[in-house]
Design a protein around this nucleic acid. Structure first.
Length: 951
RNA sequence: GGACGAUUAGCUCAGUUGGUUAGAGCGCGUCGCUCACAUCGACGAGGUCGCAGGUUCAAAUCCUGCAUCGUCCACCA
């Protein structure tokens, strides 16, 4: 028993590291600007600087790398610009957590020192994800790497803020915003996604103010002496200023204008009417808490009611909640309050209530709507052009259905809250004059007023009053306020907008607009939409032409993969186990276009197995055949050589494959492109062509006298070709084709599996050099790396439908014979005789294919059927297998079953063909084809019937 | 409450503009380590294309409705 060792398996480890650093050294990642050529540009969706690579990133970046490598091989100047995003809240959280281990808060350090601390953290850990991208094989131009907080990008942010401010697109005001009590900052609507939760609806009695002569118990009065409000957040009642009902709600009509008593605080509040109130919800009466609810805020404003806070920014109750509650957390307070109300008999009931509540997208804390003074950007005017360019098709989404999602959001866009109450980020370029502010107040809606100075640097003196008491706004900008400028800020905007020398284009001139954006659907609103707006506004041009949206990576049960859920599969683990190529191939292979991806570890086997297959096929060719095939390619590919069927077939299939791969990539059908390569390489090239080549190899050795195939490692003398033995010449052609297809396949595979393809390609190169000892290299091996080698082009001349048909017939026959042999458990193939009747004459010369691949040597072409044989039919040919001690009953059964099947199908076809309308209305080809099929089946049936008769 | 997507073999999915007998990978069963590859090879079993209507000579494919699952959006306390 021979034990298998691991030597035959592909070992990715060293290979991958070796080639990546080679590519980097050679400078292949950095494009050369060539004014004569149109570039292809991708900007990376910048990963969060605190992030580690997860499967979503892996998929995203692999797709980009496929595109960029594909274009680069076509000789197009390609730029893939990488970078990271400072991720304000996330990064601040990370550093704060680190500090808290030392028992420190950021306030202990103070702003400046804290920021230093974050920068230090970034220097140490900020390149984790970048290094992981390198492991994946991403061919980004690292020399152009950017960070949203670096100098240039910060300048862009300032420039944009100032421009928007001056054009009155930015304003400041008091509004209800999404407040995260944990992060203690405002969030934009996009940063506070709704999550359905099982809450409760509390029904609370608000006593009515006693009227004269009426006692509180309400005895002898049909009117109840209280009004019941329903709320999901009872603790906000300390901020109530009114109770509102619908003006036409009959139940409450009489109460409008009356007063109610806010329990616990015993505060008198008015009962008002407003049509925004929904009479069908709860009791139809709603408590109005303007500072803690957006709707209430609007209603209160309409009724000229001011409000009151009952919570602190950190979510604890403040003094307005009264002594008993002050300092309690909001949920704690809720429970205590409910107990309190129960005791006072003011709680009517509690109902379970399913509702959706916003949560902080960073820490998942429940959002508290909270009134605060924030900066906003007006979006509607910016959206207009961004809608236009998509509607006109200047920017296209792939798959197209996302267009609607985008447009729907854009058309209903709301203002963007851009200020954040954190420290890590771009500080607002806004300065205040203490003196002026004191005079005018700072609460104006339109801050273009005295005392507010928007500028890149702190002014020495106030331009209005000359005071030098000037301080900067404490807030920083939303991280996305820098990301939305990414496509042009990374290319040097605003600084390098133009060069004097016209021939010398700047990056911005040359690479903007970029070509393609590859991203996930979650990011459409956050980022894609805003980039389009920014591009139109500041560059006057679209930021990219195509937007490819890939699926979300989920676990096998459909949950989104995330570290916090513990269901994540670490890409680096997978790379360690099976290599980057296998990971890359697998993740693309299992992702249906634009659909979500349900991942489990075992799904990575596809890529691993394929890498191994590629590896071993190349090992076979490199070890058993010479790479030196000079002279023959031109004859072969010019069509002047008399090519055998298998060569014509494989060349045809191969060129067809190249064509299809290109078509797929042009349409972002990555998975399909991979399957085409996979199918061709494995099931056509390896399963059939290489198998057939093996016997050519054997023959060659016999004829050239270099020994048996067992001694294949011995070198052949190239001159042996001159002896002119037929098979030797044939074998030269086979050898040429083997290398040609292997080498070109590697180029075709390279965007998908960059490392293994480079390794094999370099081995071919090395072998050729060794054999030829000449400087001259065949065309496509002239490059120093497959990365810059020429992308395969399909040669239409080599696509040969006839050869494909013939070969397919042979394949079918071989499979049918194998099937029979398996069924009869044939062990000794020498005793079997194969008789073919009605086999196409022109294919008789290829009977060696049959004998090689079925191991039956005794093949006969006859017109008469042998008597005792087991038989089957393939197309028009009848196959008979003659062997001793044959048990014919098995075959009979099978044939009978087949006849039944055929009858069914024939019946169906006949019905169809007898239909008048079908003959009249169906296209001629379809009718013709159907007729042909029926004829074919009829013949088949006849033959089988005849066979049966003989048994 | 809206919008979008999914429903095809045990599982994961292909299936272009309707047109021969609906495909693949994994899994399963049988056989095989023949010197590229057991991460392999050969062969096989397995599907009334979610349900109900409709359009059509012809529907997995187009239309309508329904069901189930999923995602996103939406200020209903």
């Amino acid at each position: 028993m021979k034990t298998k060792d691991m030597n035959f398996r592909y070992q990715p480890k060293e290979t991958e590291e070796k080639w990546y650093s080679y590519w980097e050294e050679q400078g292949y990642f950095t494009p050369e600007i060539d004014v004569k050529k149109k570039p292809y540009t991708i900007v990376i969706p910048p990963p969060n600087v605190t992030g580690v690579l997860h499967m979503g990133h892996a998929l995203n970046n692999v797709l980009q790398d496929i595109l960029i490598r594909w274009k680069r091989m076509q000789g197009i100047p390609t730029l893939w610009l990488p970078g990271t995003d400072h991720a304000g809240i996330a990064t601040q959280n990370v550093v704060e957590r680190m500090l808290s281990k030392k028992g420190l808060k950021r306030q202990d350090l103070g702003r400046e020192r804290f920021i230093q601390e974050v920068w230090r953290w970034k220097e140490e850990h900020g390149s984790t994800i970048i290094n992981q991208l390198k492991r994946l094989g991403c061919s980004c131009d690292w020399s152009r790497e950017r960070f949203t907080m670096d100098k240039g990008l910060s300048a862009a942010v300032q420039e944009v803020f100032i421009r928007l401010y001056e054009e009155r697109f930015i304003y400041r005001g008091n509004y209800i915003v999404n407040w995260c009590p944990r992060c203690q900052t405002a969030l934009s609507d996009e940063e506070a996604p709704h999550k359905e939760i099982e809450g409760k609806l509390y029904y609370i009695k608000y006593p009515l103010k006693e009227r004269k002569g009426q006692r509180a118990e309400g005895k002898g009065n049909s009117q109840p002496d209280f009004v019941v409000v329903a709320t999901t957040r009872p603790e906000t009642m300390f901020g109530d200023v009114a109770v509102a009902v619908h003006p036409r709600d009959k139940r409450y009509k009489k109460l409008i204008g009356k007063k109610a008593i806010l329990p616990i605080l015993n505060k008198e509040i008015p009962i008002i009417s407003d049509s925004a109130v929904n009479s069908n919800f709860g009791t139809g009466a709603v408590k109005i808490t303007p500072f803690h609810d957006a709707n209430d805020f609007d209603i209160a404003r309409r009724h000229n009611l001011s409000g009151a806070f009952c919570m602190n920014p950190n979510g604890t109750m403040n003094a307005n909640a009264g002594e008993d509650y002050e300092g309690m957390g909001r949920f704690e307070a809720r429970e205590a309050l409910i107990e309190d109300l129960k005791e006072r008999k003011l709680l009517l009931k509690i109902e379970p209530h399913l509702h959706s509540v916003e949560h902080c997208y960073r820490c998942h804390t429940m959002i508290e709507p909270y009134l605060s003074h924030q900066w906003f950007a007006r979006m509607k005017p910016l959206a207009k052009k961004a809608i236009e360019v998509v509607k006109k098709g200047e920017i296209k989404f792939y798959p197209p259905r996302w267009t609607k999602v985008y447009l729907n959001w854009m058309e209903n866009i709301r203002d963007w809250c851009i200020s954040r109450q954190i420290w890590w980020g771009h500080r607002l370029p806004v300065f205040y004059c203490k003196n002026c502010i004191q005079k005018t107040g700072s609460k104006s809606q339109f801050p273009k007023q005295r005392g507010i100075i928007v500028a890149k640097t702190k002014p020495e003196r106030c331009p209005y009053c000359g005071s030098s008491e000037i301080y900067q706004d404490e807030d920083v900008l939303d991280t996305w306020f820098s990301s939305w400028l990414w496509p042009f800020s990374t290319l040097g905007w605003p600084e390098k907008q133009k060069t004097e020398d016209r021939k010398q284009k700047t990056d911005l001139d040359y690479f903007y607009p970029t070509s393609t954006l590859v991203t996930a659907p979650e990011i459409i609103f956050f980022w894609v939409a805003r980039m389009i707006m920014a591009g139109m506004k500041f560059m006057g041009k679209i930021p990219f032409k195509d937007v490819y949206i890939h699926g979300t990576v989920r676990d096998a049960s459909g949950k989104k993969m995330s570290k916090s859920l513990g269901n994540a599969i670490d890409p680096l683990e997978i790379i360690k186990e099976i290599g980057s190529d296998a990971l890359r191939f697998s993740i693309v292979f299992i992702s249906a276009t634009g659909q979500d991806i349900f991942l489990s570890k075992q799904k990575f086997a596809v890529g691993r197995n394929f890498a191994n297959k590629v590896w071993n096929a190349s090992r076979y060719i490199l070890q058993n055949w010479e790479a030196n095939y000079e002279g023959l390619p031109s004859i072969v590919f010019a069509g002047s050589a008399d090519l055998e069927l298998k060569e014509r077939w494989i060349l045809s299939r191969f060129n067809q494959t190249i064509k299809e791969v290109n078509r797929c990539l042009e349409n972002y059908r990555f998975q399909e492109a991979e399957s085409k390569i996979y199918e061709f390489f494995w099931h056509q090239f390896c399963d059939w062509y290489i198998e057939l080549a093996k016997s050519v190899h054997a023959t060659r050795h016999t004829l050239t006298g270099t020994g048996t195939p067992h001694a294949t490692r011995q070198k052949l003398k190239p001159k042996s070709v001159e002896r002119g033995a037929w098979s030797v010449e044939r074998s030269e052609i086979t050898q040429t084709i083997l290398y040609h297809i292997l080498e070109t396949s590697m180029r075709l595979l390279h965007p998908f599996m960059p490392f293994i393809s480079e390794e094999i390609w370099q081995r071919i190169r090395r072998q050729r050099r060794k054999e030829r000892k000449q400087k001259e290299k065949p065309e496509n091996l002239q490059a120093e790396s497959i990365m810059v080698a020429e992308w395969p082009k399909a040669d239409e001349k080599l696509i040969d439908k006839k050869a494909e048909e013939d070969m397919e017939l042979l394949i079918e026959i071989i499979q049918a014979i194998r099937n029979l042999c398996a069924e009869l458990s044939v062990k000794n193939f020498k005793e079997v005789k194969l008789v073919l009747v009605h086999f196409p004459k022109r294919l008789e010369r290829y009977s060696n294919y049959l004998s090689q691949l079925t191991r039956i040597e005794n093949i006969d072409y006859q017109t008469t059927k042998p008597k005792k044989a087991i038989s089957t039919v393939v197309q028009k040919s009848e196959l008979y297998l003659v062997l001793k001690d044959i048990d014919l009953s098995k075959g009979k059964e099978r044939l009978t079953r087949k006849i039944e099947e055929l009858d069914k199908e024939l019946e169906r076809l006949s019905q169809k063909l007898e239909h008048k309308d079908f003959l009249q209305k169906a296209p001629r080809e379809v009718v013709q084809k159907t007729k042909e099929t029926r004829e074919k089946l009829k013949q088949e049936r006849k033959k089988i019937f005849a066979m049966l008769g003989q048994i």
